[in-house]
Computed example of a mutant assay.
Amino acid sequence: MENYSVILGVDVSKLTLDISSAERNLHLEISNDNKGFNSFIKWCKLNGIYTKTVFVVME
């Protein structure tokens, strides 16, 4: 199994995405579009989350 720096859970809806990390006690709600995705990348950088080593679980 790979070594992941963090696991993110994503609740997907038509208009928004709720992203959370239980182990880091983090939460973010973004729009489900390019603007929201750019916000997600900035949020990851702010919180020391490296997107190359993240495991994402979507529901």
Rank of each mutant, 00 (worst) to 15 (best):
M1N: 14
M1V: 02
M1Y: 12
M1S: 15
M1K: 15
E2W: 02
E2S: 09
E2I: 05
E2V: 02
N3G: 13
Y4P: 15
Y4L: 15
S5R: 03
V6P: 07
I7S: 04
I7N: 01
I7Y: 05
L8N: 13
G9P: 09
G9H: 12
V10Q: 14
V10I: 11
V10L: 10
D11R: 06
D11W: 14
D11Q: 08
D11Y: 15
V12A: 11
V12L: 14
V12W: 02
S13I: 08
K14H: 03
T16G: 02
T16N: 08
T16Y: 01
L17C: 09
L17T: 02
L17V: 08
L17N: 07
D18K: 02
D18G: 08
D18H: 00
D18E: 12
I19D: 07
I19R: 07
S20V: 12
S20A: 12
S21L: 03
S21E: 07
S21G: 11
S21N: 06
A22C: 01
E23R: 11
E23K: 13
N25A: 12
N25V: 00
L26T: 01
L26K: 08
H27Y: 15
H27L: 14
H27R: 14
L28V: 08
L28Y: 00
E29A: 15
I30F: 04
I30E: 06
I30S: 09
N32I: 14
D33N: 11
D33V: 00
D33E: 13
N34A: 08
N34W: 10
K35H: 10
K35N: 09
G36W: 05
G36K: 01
F37Q: 08
F37M: 13
F37N: 04
N38V: 03
N38G: 00
N38I: 07
N38M: 00
N38F: 04
S39Q: 08
S39A: 12
F40V: 10
F40C: 07
F40D: 05
I41E: 02
K42C: 06
K42N: 06
K42Q: 09
W43V: 13
W43A: 14
C44D: 04
C44K: 04
K45M: 05
K45F: 05
K45H: 05
K45R: 01
L46E: 13
L46A: 14
N47A: 12
G48E: 11
I49F: 02
I49A: 10
I49G: 11
I49W: 01
I49C: 12
Y50F: 10
Y50N: 13
Y50Q: 11
Y50S: 10
T51R: 05
T51A: 15
T51L: 13
T53P: 11
V54K: 03
V54N: 04
V54H: 04
V54A: 00
F55D: 10
F55I: 04
V56L: 10
V56I: 15
V56N: 07
V57T: 06
V57A: 07
V57I: 03
M58V: 00
E59A: 04
E59D: 09
E59N: 01
